[in-house]
Simulated assay, not measured.
Amino acid sequence: MSPESARVVEIARGHQGKDSQAINQWYDSDHPDASWCARFVSWVFNEAGGPLPDMQKTHRDPRAQGFQSVEWAVGTAMEQGVWHEGTDGTRPGDVVVFDARPQPFR
């Protein structure tokens, strides 16, 4: 496992069982309908020093990093050619999505 991946895993594990206040504050909770899991993944990568790219073409907050919707992240990953089906080759620290349908880009 790379040092970057190890840091992602360490931060995620360290936040287990804690409330989401830090994440909501970081994300400036202007979007109460956002998926907590998507925010969590974005927050973890930011805390690990490797913020995810903007993966939401329609977000309303110019400060947003990462994603608030798993569907948008999948759509963006597909559009950028970094999406692949299945879990072969996944490693600790990778972002894995189960059963998400990308939203059409407008």
Results as ranks from 00 to 15, higher is better:
80 Q>M: 13
13 R>I: 01
61 D>W: 12
35 S>E: 12
23 I>S: 02
42 S>Y: 06
91 R>W: 08
26 W>Q: 01
36 W>T: 00
66 G>C: 02
62 P>K: 06
104 P>Y: 13
7 R>T: 07
79 E>F: 14
26 W>K: 00
53 P>F: 05
38 A>G: 11
33 D>F: 08
40 F>H: 11
19 D>H: 12
78 M>F: 08
87 T>W: 06
90 T>M: 15
44 V>S: 03
50 G>M: 05
16 Q>D: 07
4 E>Y: 05
34 A>S: 06
101 R>T: 15
27 Y>A: 01
34 A>V: 02
77 A>V: 12
26 W>P: 00
99 D>G: 03
30 D>C: 01
12 A>I: 00
49 G>E: 07
46 N>H: 08
78 M>Q: 09
79 E>I: 14
14 G>P: 06
35 S>K: 10
75 G>S: 07
63 R>Y: 10
56 Q>F: 07
11 I>N: 01
10 E>I: 01
90 T>K: 11
53 P>S: 04
5 S>I: 15
15 H>C: 02
72 W>E: 10
51 P>Y: 04
104 P>Q: 13
93 G>V: 05
34 A>I: 02
104 P>A: 12
35 S>L: 14
42 S>C: 13
91 R>E: 04
85 E>H: 06
74 V>T: 09
105 F>H: 11
85 E>K: 10
74 V>A: 11
80 Q>E: 05
40 F>Y: 11
71 E>I: 02
20 S>N: 15
34 A>L: 03
52 L>T: 05
39 R>Q: 12
61 D>P: 01
90 T>H: 10
103 Q>M: 15
95 V>Y: 01
70 V>C: 14
80 Q>R: 09
70 V>Y: 03
28 D>Q: 12
41 V>K: 04
19 D>A: 10
